[in-house]
Design a binder for these strands. Structure first.
Lengths: 375, 375
DNA sequence: CTGAAAGCGCTTACAG
DNA sequence: CTGAAAGCGCTTACAG
């Protein structure tokens, strides 16, 4: 602990300069003992010889303050290096200017590039709009103790963005009445009336199936995951429908759960190829599973793409740097995060209408796909 | 906007139950119009027929309150579903129970698994210790406008964790006086007196060099990055020193900057092998660059590990799922994040001594390394 | 156009 | 062991 009796440098020096030589002595009630205390509205008001109300209104750009006064007081605020205490501001104004970001309670959730991209978009946009981001994880206790409501009641946040949620996150129902602003990021729920911004997963899946069918693939396996997530279910649905439409029998033995992980993808690829050696293409629900599948295929001596084509979904950073580089669907996750954030802030500011934003996706063709082999 | 004239359900229902039938009417000053207002300390005090001070002390487990009173009032708090307004709490108590986490201003920084692991550790530990996490990015304006100080002065945070910072982040100097609690995560600075918790990079590098030299490698290239980061410089230093000690000429042409990216790693590998075709091993400063190097080698028709061994650094999730799986150094990033968080909270609570924590690392041998080829 | 005063919802000396 | 009151640092009607 440093010596309290010594005056400090930094901001206090700036404040000291506030009284120019020759000016009448400041009427501020700050004493020498206050040296470590931050400057308050009162100090600024005393220095400027106006009321605290006036300084407050200058700070909030209230039009009732004359241009001259505004300018004069702004200068004093600047010179004194005054920073408003936002706890006091929020307590009075009832806005915190903080948004919560809720992640699922997965181990090391933040290390997932999928969530990372969304959060990057959210943080950038929030920062530009004057909001801070607070992190939450949807742990079982969290929901059981109704902490998702408490963060509002206790005034931690003005709104909440939820990522990676699924149909079993029943607490989302508590937001259906619109009392507490919430926006679902990159997912959607039919059972609850909630704002959302989402990538067009079904559209991306259509492009993949078109492409594979055009290349002559007829024996296409699917490595899916988490069908309780609507967007993941959409992809699986398109896969089945397009295969059925093209006159092929659709049978659950052609689809295998890969749990969205590298390991799961490898295991699912192994299971599918054992069951159906005639498979010429694997359509994977994310890039990680696709990379796991490629890993399995390489170890099993099956060449990609000559013998089996592999398609991912995400377009994560490393998709271009595996061997062979991965054909995948690009998801504008950064943009979805930013858009969801903006829509949530609109809501915090009073917008009443629900929003449902869908951002387009597109196929990125690389080297993991080729014409179906002649078998 | 929903109808304001209707009484709401949820928490108000609970509060209504607080007056049991037959009890005298509550003396609370809450009226019907208050229906949407959250319950305050005053309401609880009125209901319990004690002063707000007493309820406050119950809330803060102040020992001056008798066990009987504590129990009785706790029950009432529970029954009413009261949640203290933490803005008011913080304004009075001068603690926010929020920690800032600062990331460098890299594009899509959150999508990096390295930062993600650290943040996972930080969030878990912070949550367990009753703290929330607020996100910040060290954008140029941010530092120029001294926002790193303002988040303290404005009472956003009690302490700050900084990730991915380097010697050019001069704003860290402002924390050397210990006035505002800060902890450097997975890095260290010799020029500024700051708390830190860091992985043993030099120790990991020693293990890599031992291993490669034992396998008979003598022509070892190094793909490094960001030598302005102390830990990265440590790795480069160990590489040079061990090569020199084993009687080899150390020459800058054997090391190449790979900018910590897949692309950079691929380009650096290409440059090194063009310059020195006799290279039998590449030691990379992180897994991403190693995977990029593997990608280049595969495309160039150079077999890994038969012709060239590749070693990474990080042990990121996918290191085990590239082909061939990657030999690398495991960094306990989750643990470093958690430990840094805990040390920062100690500091917030008043610990005066500086701390410098170092966590051990270890080599993980997989399939990207083998005996040096006979050339 | 500006000021005095009440209020936001807590905590914390200070009395008793 | 508990209460009355001041205070944390702002904003916002309400006067003038």
């Amino acid at each position: 602990m440093s010596d309290t009796t010594l005056p400090r440098s930094t901001s206090r020096v700036i404040a000291a300069k506030a009284t120019e030589p020759g000016e009448p002595r400041s009427t501020s009630r700050r004493t020498f003992d206050d040296a470590r205390k931050p400057i308050s509205l009162r100090d600024v008001a005393a220095e400027a010889k106006v009321s605290v109300a006036t300084v407050s209104m200058v700070l909030n750009d209230n039009p009732r303050i004359s241009r001259a006064t505004h300018l004069r007081i702004s200068r004093i605020i600047e010179r004194m290096g005054y920073q408003p205490n936002r706890l006091a501001q929020s307590l009075s104004s009832r806005y915190t200017r903080v948004l919560g970001v809720m992640l699922p309670a997965l181990r090391h959730a933040f290390a997932d590039a999928y969530f990372g991209e969304l959060i990057s978009g959210i943080c950038d946009r929030a920062g530009k709009m004057g909001f801070k981001i607070m992190l939450e994880q949807a742990k079982p206790e969290f929901v059981k103790e109704r902490k998702h409501i408490h963060i509002f009641e206790r005034r931690y946040v003005d709104g909440l963005l939820v990522l990676g949620m699924n149909d079993r996150h029943h607490f989302l129902e508590d937001f259906a009445d619109g009392r507490y602003p919430l926006c679902v990021v990159d997912n959607k729920f039919n059972q609850w009336k909630l704002d959302h911004a989402v990538c067009d997963y079904a559209g991306g899946a259509e492009q993949v199936m078109n492409y594979l069918l055009q290349l002559g693939h007829r024996h296409i396996g699917c490595i899916y995951a988490a069908p309780e997530i609507q967007t993941a279910a959409d992809v699986l649905h398109v896969y089945r429908k397009r295969l059925g439409d093209s006159g092929h029998e659709v049978d659950d033995s052609w689809a295998q759960d890969g749990r969205f992980t590298d390991e799961g993808g490898a295991a699912a690829a192994a299971a599918l190829l054992k069951r159906h050696p005639e498979i010429t293409a694997l359509f994977c629900g994310n890039d990680k599973m696709a990379i796991g599948a490629q890993h399995y295929l390489a170890n099993a001596g099956i060449r990609v793409p000559e013998e089996v084509s592999v398609v991912g979904f995400d377009n994560m950073q490393n998709a271009a740097f595996v061997t062979p580089s991965l054909t995948t669907v690009h998801l504008p996750l950064y943009q979805v995060g930013a858009l969801a954030c903006e829509r949530l802030i609109d809501r915090v500011r009073g917008r009443a209408e629900r929003v449902a934003e869908v951002l387009p996706t597109h196929l990125v063709v690389r080297n993991s796909t080729a014409m179906a082999r002649q078998s």
